[in-house]
Amino acid sequence: SEEEEEEWRRAKERGEEIIILGILWKPNDEEAERRIKEALRRV
């Protein structure tokens, strides 16, 4: 969703871990980033 995407962007800017759509994303975690982008597209 729009607000999840916004939340994720803010976490990326701050360089902090975030759990979004049930996926743990850490800074520079390209695999998780790809999965999150896929999940955001499906929503």
Score class of each variant (00 low, 15 high):
Ser1His: 15
Ser1Gly: 15
Ser1Pro: 13
Ser1Met: 15
Ser1Gln: 13
Ser1Leu: 15
Ser1Cys: 15
Ser1Arg: 13
Glu2Asn: 13
Glu2Ile: 14
Glu2Tyr: 15
Glu2Pro: 13
Glu2Trp: 15
Glu2Val: 14
Glu3Ser: 14
Glu3Thr: 14
Glu3Val: 14
Glu3Phe: 14
Glu3Asp: 14
Glu3Arg: 14
Glu3Gly: 14
Glu4Ser: 13
Glu4Asn: 10
Glu4Gln: 13
Glu4Phe: 15
Glu4Asp: 13
Glu5Arg: 05
Glu5Leu: 13
Glu5Ser: 07
Glu6Lys: 07
Glu6His: 06
Glu6Asn: 09
Glu6Ile: 08
Glu6Asp: 12
Glu6Leu: 10
Glu7Cys: 15
Glu7Val: 12
Glu7Ser: 14
Glu7Lys: 15
Glu7Ala: 15
Glu7Met: 15
Glu7Asn: 15
Trp8Cys: 07
Trp8Gln: 01
Trp8Ser: 00
Trp8Met: 04
Trp8Arg: 01
Trp8His: 01
Trp8Leu: 10
Arg9Phe: 09
Arg9Ser: 06
Arg9Gly: 04
Arg9Val: 08
Arg9Thr: 08
Arg10Ser: 05
Arg10Thr: 06
Arg10Ala: 09
Arg10Gly: 06
Arg10Leu: 08
Arg10Glu: 04
Ala11Lys: 04
Ala11Leu: 12
Ala11His: 06
Ala11Val: 08
Lys12Glu: 01
Lys12Trp: 14
Lys12Leu: 09
Lys12His: 11
Lys12Thr: 06
Lys12Pro: 02
Lys12Asp: 02
Lys12Gln: 09
Glu13Met: 13
Glu13Lys: 09
Glu13Trp: 08
Glu13Asp: 10
Glu13Asn: 07
Glu13Ala: 13
Glu13Ser: 12
Arg14Leu: 11
Arg14Val: 08
Arg14Gln: 09
Arg14Phe: 07
Gly15Val: 04
Gly15Asn: 09
Gly15His: 05
Gly15Pro: 02
Gly15Thr: 03
Gly15Ala: 04
Gly15Lys: 06
Gly15Arg: 06
Glu16Ala: 07
Glu16His: 10
Glu16Val: 12
Glu16Thr: 10
Glu16Ile: 13
Glu16Asn: 07
Glu16Asp: 10
Glu16Leu: 13
Glu16Arg: 07
Glu16Met: 10
Glu17Gly: 05
Glu17Gln: 11
Glu17Ser: 13
Glu17Val: 12
Ile18Leu: 04
Ile18Ser: 03
Ile18Arg: 04
Ile18Thr: 09
Ile18Trp: 07
Ile18Tyr: 09
Ile18Gly: 00
Ile19Tyr: 13
Ile19His: 05
Ile19Ala: 04
Ile19Met: 11
Ile19Asp: 02
Ile19Trp: 15
Ile19Glu: 09
Ile19Thr: 12
Ile20Gln: 01
Ile20His: 01
Ile20Ala: 01
Ile20Trp: 03
Leu21Tyr: 05
Leu21Thr: 02
Leu21Cys: 14
Leu21Trp: 03
Gly22Val: 12
Gly22Met: 13
Gly22Lys: 00
Gly22Gln: 02
Gly22His: 02
Gly22Glu: 02
Ile23Asp: 00
Ile23Pro: 01
Ile23Gly: 01
Leu24Glu: 03
Leu24Val: 08
Leu24Met: 08
Leu24Phe: 06
Leu24Ala: 05
Leu24Thr: 08
Leu24Asn: 04
Trp25Pro: 00
Trp25Ile: 02
Trp25Val: 01
Trp25Phe: 04
Trp25Tyr: 03
Trp25Cys: 03
Trp25Gln: 00
Trp25Asp: 00
Trp25Asn: 00
Lys26Ile: 11
Lys26Pro: 03
Lys26Glu: 03
Lys26Thr: 12
Lys26Phe: 05
Lys26Leu: 06
Lys26Tyr: 05
Lys26Arg: 14
Pro27Ile: 03
Pro27Lys: 02
Pro27Asp: 04
Pro27Cys: 12
Pro27Glu: 04
Pro27Met: 03
Pro27Ser: 02
Asn28Pro: 04
Asn28Tyr: 10
Asn28Met: 08
Asn28Leu: 06
Asn28Lys: 05
Asn28His: 11
Asn28Ser: 06
Asn28Ile: 01
Asp29Trp: 06
Asp29Gly: 01
Asp29Leu: 02
Asp29Lys: 01
Asp29Phe: 03
Asp29Ala: 03
Asp29Thr: 01
Glu30Thr: 09
Glu30Ala: 11
Glu30Asn: 09
Glu30Met: 13
Glu30Arg: 09
Glu30Tyr: 12
Glu30Leu: 13
Glu30Trp: 10
Glu31His: 06
Glu31Lys: 04
Glu31Trp: 05
Glu31Asn: 07
Ala32Gln: 02
Ala32Ile: 04
Ala32Leu: 05
Ala32Arg: 02
Glu33Met: 07
Glu33Arg: 04
Glu33Pro: 00
Glu33Asp: 11
Arg34Tyr: 09
Arg34Phe: 10
Arg34Cys: 15
Arg35Asn: 06
Arg35Glu: 07
Arg35Met: 13
Arg35Gln: 12
Arg35His: 06
Arg35Trp: 06
Arg35Ser: 07
Ile36Asn: 00
Ile36Leu: 05
Ile36Lys: 01
Ile36Trp: 04
Ile36Val: 11
Lys37Ala: 10
Lys37Leu: 15
Lys37Glu: 14
Lys37His: 11
Lys37Ile: 15
Glu38Met: 05
Glu38Asn: 06
Glu38Ile: 09
Glu38His: 04
Glu38Ser: 07
Glu38Phe: 02
Glu38Arg: 05
Glu38Lys: 04
Ala39Asp: 00
Ala39Gln: 06
Ala39Ile: 08
Ala39Gly: 04
Ala39Met: 12
Ala39Lys: 08
Ala39Pro: 00
Ala39Cys: 12
Leu40Trp: 05
Leu40Tyr: 02
Leu40Thr: 00
Leu40Ser: 00
Leu40Met: 08
Leu40Pro: 00
Leu40Arg: 03
Arg41Trp: 07
Arg41Thr: 08
Arg41Gln: 10
Arg41Ile: 08
Arg41Asn: 11
Arg41Val: 08
Arg41Cys: 14
Arg42Gly: 09
Arg42Pro: 04
Arg42Asp: 06
Arg42Leu: 12
Arg42Ala: 12
Arg42Lys: 12
Val43Met: 14
Val43Gly: 09
Val43Gln: 13
Val43Glu: 12
Val43His: 14
Val43Leu: 15
Val43Arg: 15
